[in-house]
Write a protein that binds this DNA or RNA. Structure first.
Lengths: 343, 343
DNA sequence: ATGCTCTGCTAAATCAGTTTAGCGACGTAG
DNA sequence: CTACGTCGCTAAACTGATTTAGCAGAGCAT
């Protein structure tokens, strides 16, 4: 890989100057007294030789590598990871940085290994990302340098900068959307889950979304008609919860699903029951999973702003001296699954 | 990030030996005549100081970084990328390597930039990945060192090692599955697409899948009842193609979909038409997208072995001196969408 | 006593940059 | 005429590892 690359010494020789001069010119150092002509000669030589500095040599001296570690529990392999990584990649490129990506798979030994591998390579900072928005314990090893938590917070005393989706506001928007269409006392919700709501190490989203929904409804004097519990946020549980909903005497006019996979299950149950969306029932949800746009009708949902979040993490890491959480808004994708309640 | 790390000189000093001795012991060099006691002392000192070598310094000398570049067109951000990266990450870790990931977004300038950034960092090799299985032009810059193409081939004369899913065999398995259930002359297919089938720079999968299906059916004297064309392999096109299928006089007993997203569209159309799967019609497909397991009934599909592929790419890069393509089998996920044709 | 080999170890060069300290020439002020 | 400052540039140290070349001492044969 890249043998015969020109070195700084080659550039200096061709320019008829010292390595020092060449280095200073190429780094655009202020306050050197090198002549305009010297600048010219160095640039010309570098250009001619196609010179590119050796990052290893440079970082040996400077302790900077223009490399960021992106460590995640398991995020890199999930659908959600894509956006996070893409956003981080874009922001990193804009700042001439590069991403070293690892996954811990939630395994302490792997995590230890991954972090050491990153630190051995002198990364300039670490982005520590979680798949599910949650609170997590930060491995002490990375606290020696800049760290940003992505889709996660840390126990309060650390006050690390972190990037989170604004789930509470999203909950409010979802509720507002239904209220605006005239839904009132027949709004159901599926996806309640005690574990997710009470244990911040499992999820921060559940509680925040619920809080946003409830407070917004409450402001108009509305309370939820039913709240369906689900052991996981998967289609099959959305399906089961929706069937339970339909067995009740009062049929809801709208269903809020805690995420799109539940909503997918709801669509299946409603389809089987011969009910149409949004004619008989409106459905609205969270995440903007790709299936949301594939469903018929398209599912209205508050999108997890993954790209924005990944981008923000890099920005905070490199530019900022931020402390505490930075919330990224979740835009509402309006599709066809919400309408006014039937007669 | 990681200041005050112990250096090799620190270890040597504590062990009462020279840097040379320490280096040799820690690298397990054969044929040195260092005493057993010297080994002990070095190991003890390294342990005590928590010594970890500085990769930048080492690679400056050795020109090895234990780092692999993973460059993709756009793969890193898609659902499919997850498995590819995960497999590569696992295999890399097993060999004590780390992955530098970039995305070119199909943009030549970005690609140029990404590759230079990787080479500047002295990566030991490059994995060049494509989102859609296809043939691509390899940027000359990376040909200086080891390269493996992932989910892609290169124009023949290069003979680069590459990793591809075995789509033809998958097509055969899909056809065999239907034949085994007794389907014969009412097998339909949706997802024909002239562009994908004829331009290897767009897709290699379409043509291979089709070839596997056709030759297997032909061996039993069967030909496809209908072949539905789709401008893209998206749910809406699967939906439209399936509706067209149902408008024909002879209703198919089974539908082969060129991928799972088309199959999702087919499910939607069949559901609307009041047809049940697999009672009225069997459906079978390719990819094993997550939705395949979410559908009701679960969709039988030939899985893209992303993790295996990512893993194989790293193995070929580091261990092998392979030439040409390496095919990874696509396992058939048998779910409930296939049954014997109705009476 | 001399020369030779073998053992156990080390000094110093090297990789490719950055950075510190300072040198010689020239101009100007006293 | 000398002292001093500025200009334009460079030698050499430094980063932390690997690797080459070779040294000192012990043991043995001649």
């Amino acid at each position: 890989m890249g043998r015969n690359r020109a070195t700084l010494a080659d550039v200096a020789r061709l320019a008829g100057l010292s390595k020092t001069a060449a280095s200073m010119v190429l780094n655009g150092r202020e306050g050197t007294r090198l002549s305009a002509e010297a600048h010219q000669r160095v640039f010309a030589a570098a250009e001619e030789l196609g010179y590119r500095p050796n990052v290893a040599a440079r970082s040996l001296r400077t302790r900077k590598t223009a490399t960021i570690a992106f460590v995640s529990d398991i995020v890199a392999t999930t659908r959600f990871a894509g956006g996070l990584i893409r956003g981080a990649l874009d922001a990193a490129r804009e700042r001439d940085h590069v991403l070293l990506i690892t996954e811990t798979q939630g395994d302490a030994a792997f995590e230890q290994y991954a972090i050491e591998a990153m630190l051995d390579r002198q990364v300039d900072g670490v982005i520590y990302a979680a798949m599910a928005t949650r609170r997590l314990a930060v491995p002490p090893a990375i606290l020696g340098g800049p760290v940003v938590l992505l889709n996660a917070t840390s126990p309060v005393q650390l006050q690390l900068p972190c990037v989170l989706p604004d789930d509470e506001r999203a909950g409010a928007m979802v509720a507002e959307t239904l209220l605006a269409q005239g839904h009132r006392d027949r709004i159901a919700l599926i996806g309640r889950n005690r574990q997710k709501e009470s244990d911040p190490e499992i999820s921060l989203a559940a509680e925040a979304r619920l809080r946003g929904i409830r407070s917004t409804l409450a402001a108009t004097g509305v309370t939820l008609l039913v709240e369906g519990f689900c052991p996981e946020w998967l289609p099959e549980h959305g399906y089961a919860a929706t069937r339970r909903l339909l067995d009740r005497p009062t049929r809801p006019s709208a269903i809020i699903c805690m995420n799109d996979r539940l909503a997918f299950g709801a669509y299946q149950a409603l389809g089987e029951a011969g009910l149409t969306i949004p004619g008989d029932l409106s459905v609205i949800s969270f995440d903007d999973d790709p299936i949301a746009s594939w469903l018929r009708p398209g599912l209205s949902t508050a999108a997890l702003p993954h790209e924005q979040m990944g981008r923000r993490a890099v920005e905070l890491l490199l530019d900022g001296d931020a402390v505490g959480p930075s919330f990224v808004p979740m835009p509402l994708r309006r599709r066809r699954s919400v309408a006014a309640p039937a007669g």
